[in-house]
Amino acid sequence: MNSSALREGTARVLFSAAAAVSVVAVVLICLFLFVNGVPAMAEIGVPEFLLGAIWRPANGLYGIFPMIVGSIYVTVGAVIVGVPAGLLCAIFLSRFAGARMAMLLAPGVELLAGIPSVVYGFFGLIIMVPIIRGLAPGHGPSLLVAALLLGIMILPTVITVARNALDAVPRRYYEGALALGADHERAVFCVVVPAAASGLLAAVVLAVGRAIGETMAVIMVAGNQPVIPGSLLDGVRTLTANIALEMGYAAGLHREALVATGVVLFVLILLITLFLNAARKRGGR
């Protein structure tokens, strides 16, 4: 009895410690970001920082609006490319593919998830950029390539999470639909998929997080001009790219402005996640 109480106590301490580590990490990161970033924002001026259209640290101009827009464009583009394809693929794997087909495809999807982002970037750089250049001379690294590449990169996240959500839909919904004379397609698309809606949205939330946070691959294919793109073929710089490109040599206010960029990124992700989760809860009811 005593030893079991002891074991329980130890387990409790261990689990609490593990939980504490992650909470402390989050708190420390937030603290670091805000302590280093907010004063810079105040110094530059919040409207000038968030809405300023020109980023030229050498001249003391710190407007990150083009990067905010860039991040949103690239993410939306990735979602447009990756989410429909990923959801359809998940539906196929979960409800249409035979056991053997699923066994062939599922490891492929896992492999896709395991490829380092710098390799994706390399693929984009040496395959996709030349194709775009061939189709539209004078262009190459661009919003379009970044969106396409990110769309591919979020596929495994979307597919895996969505497939789990679809697999978890109780069999009785599907059977209930068939028993009313619905065929397989109607039962899947009109009953099973809506029943999994909350899980499918979770897949989208994760995919958006992945897309907006991706750095390396985007830097390699997006062109990185800190200017609001006028078309799909223009170059674009994201918030993450802005930080990663310049952190190496930045100092003083420039450096703090980059940390402040991180604060904006953090808040942006938080807002999107909160919004999508709220939508998910609303839909689930």
Binding site: P170, R172, Y173, E175, G176, A177, L178, A179, L180, G181, A182, D183, C190, V191, P194, A195
Partner: peptide, 27 residues
């Protein structure tokens, strides 16, 4: 599918779809 339309079934466990009452009946 025609057979199942003509021969309806009510299951042991109630299995309404996770949608509105109206949409359930209208399905």
């Amino acid at each position: 599918n025609d057979l199942r339309r003509r021969v309806g079934m009510v299951f042991q466990q109630p299995n309404p779809f996770p949608m509105s009452i109206y949409d359930n009946v209208a399905f």
